[in-house]
Design a protein around this nucleic acid. Structure first.
Lengths: 325, 325
DNA sequence: TTGAAAGCGCTAACAG
DNA sequence: CTGTTAGCGCTTTCAA
């Protein structure tokens, strides 16, 4: 029996005789044989592997949201007989790693996480014509495939809640504004404050709060303002944890003296504290969806048909209360 | 100029003329050429990739220790012009993924994390003769390469401290005992208690505490004992966080009414609380060392020469105090 | 010091 | 339905 027939039998081509196929499958199983994926990729020009290049910042990989998304992706891909790999690289090596991945064709497509407003990785992938899905949007002229939660509507949910509770002096803790989500959330914040006829005091808007420590310090800084805000929106969960901790440590009654709404789940860290939250539901499904999108893209679907915006929701908790007088 | 010469020039073979080499390198750089790693691997039988197969349990990938180790590995490997990939798989697919990796030869070696007392993954790799380094030990007759921190001495440090503070009623919260570290730590605990002539009350030894929730509940359970212990050792940091939280919520004065020593760093979670800790220092260096070990193994070094035991240290904090009367 | 040819393990086009 | 032939892009003998 020839290589060819074996190959066809194993790859489920329709033209092989059922009895032959059975024999081949049986023999393969007994011998524990499995096609060498390298040789296959070389021949067929496809690796059946999707990748994520991930600079190892503990703050991110430790992010349970990211983990859920990746979990959803890998699960969906297992079903599609594809593999997912994460390439952890040093931050300095991020762009070079993209180039290497693309030139080396070790993966058929990439997911780009943590998008920047101006993102050189995405610019490169576009230029190279390499399939990718951006997890988060970016500023770009050419159409590209992306998956994101609606930053604007999320902020509107949060701010709407605070306004309806009577708050007028509202602060914002932002992640670095080069990050697209932080930028969009801040812009939405400013827009909605303006619509409400309120002034967004610059002293109440603190940037670069991306982890617990910086969130903690930012909240301390707000507390020291002579006329401090009565409510604060935090645009990411890690600094949200820090901010809430700062309030606890300062003996502030959260939800009374100061209200807080955090974007992202903090439940597993702040046990027993019911934080009002903007939540991105269905993280695993989101991951599954992104892998489907990437597969479609590889199959040749146009990028402009692969743009998906999911809606965040407000989970009411105890940390957003009426404005004190 | 032939393929052959180009290949030799790029791979730094000594026999090529210096001028030729310069020309080739120049041309390659201009064209942005880089050898196709698939084809290379196929020809040479080596992929220059090392891997970690990782079932996505948030509790683990979120572990900052693991992140540091992986960071150290990838950094060291970048220097050695090797690549590291993490393959996140569903737990059910863990062993099949090992088989696939081995048969597929997509990686030259593997690091096996979270070793079990009886570990089928390691048994399989041994049987298959595939190069691997175990991150943590296991029960096995044949020699294998491993890297671990000394579980016994760590427990001795913790227990020694508590004994010298006068404690006699000491509890232990353990991760599932199939996990090698949990098993060794518990055995050391029992041995040292026996040496000290103390009884290890079964009601004070609670198992399967591997995350915050279970750690929290276990500590609650201890608190409900009619004659509860005066000190507790927790063998992993996640349940350590839960356990400490339980004490805080119960209004127990930690370090006075109840002492706690946790194995693993909890500083980034329990901000502002100075927990007495058994620490595994130099996580990044440990990662670097493990990748070196794996590389040596691939080069043909004997596994029995690649076994490394590092010493944990006790970081004195405020949660271990004298035994109350 | 360079080149020609064989082959790594597979798939795909083309005959039979 | 099955086999033969020709590559995929590289490295590596072996000759020149």
């Amino acid at each position: 029996m020839s290589k060819t027939t074996v190959s066809r039998a194993l790859n489920g081509y329709p033209e092989v005789n059922d009895k032959t196929r059975q024999r081949v499958l049986e023999a393969a199983r007994e011998a524990g044989y499995e096609a060498n994926p390298m040789a296959r990729s070389l021949a067929v020009g496809r690796s059946n592997v999707l990748g994520i290049i991930y600079p190892l910042l503990p703050a991110d990989l430790g992010d349970s949201m990211f983990l859920d998304v990746v979990g959803g992706m890998s699960e969906a891909l297992e079903a599609a007989r594809m593999n997912l790999i994460i390439a952890p690289v040093s931050q300095a090596n991020e762009l070079p790693s993209y180039e290497q991945m693309v030139r080396g064709k070790r993966v058929d497509g990439l997911v780009v996480s943590r998008t920047m407003v101006h993102d050189e990785r995405i610019a490169y992938l576009c230029k190279a014509g390499f399939p990718f899905v951006a997890h988060g949007r970016t500023r770009l002229d050419t159409p590209y495939a992306w998956f994101d939660y609606d930053n604007e509507s999320g902020i509107r949910l949060a701010l709407g809640r605070l306004l309806s509770l009577g708050h007028q002096r509202i602060g914002l803790l932002s992640a670095p504004l080069q990050m697209n989500f932080a930028c969009q959330r801040k812009e939405s914040f400013l827009a909605m404050m303006a619509e409400a006829g309120l002034r967004a005091d610059p002293r109440w808007m603190i940037g670069d709060t991306i982890d617990r420590r910086s969130g903690y310090q930012a909240m301390q800084q707000l507390l020291e303002c002579t006329d401090r805000p009565t409510a604060v929106v935090v645009d990411n969960h890690l600094s949200g944890v820090g901010a809430v901790r700062a309030l606890m440590d300062a003996g502030i009654e959260i939800g009374k003296e100061m209200s807080v709404i955090v974007w992202g789940s903090v439940a597993d860290t702040l046990v027993g504290l019911d934080v009002t939250t903007i939540d991105q539901p269905d993280a695993r499904r989101a991951g599954a969806r992104m892998s489907q999108m990437l597969l479609s893209l590889i199959e040749g679907a146009p990028a402009e048909s692969l743009q998906e915006l999911w809606q965040p929701v407000l989970l009411a908790g105890a940390t957003a209360g009426s404005c004190p007088h």
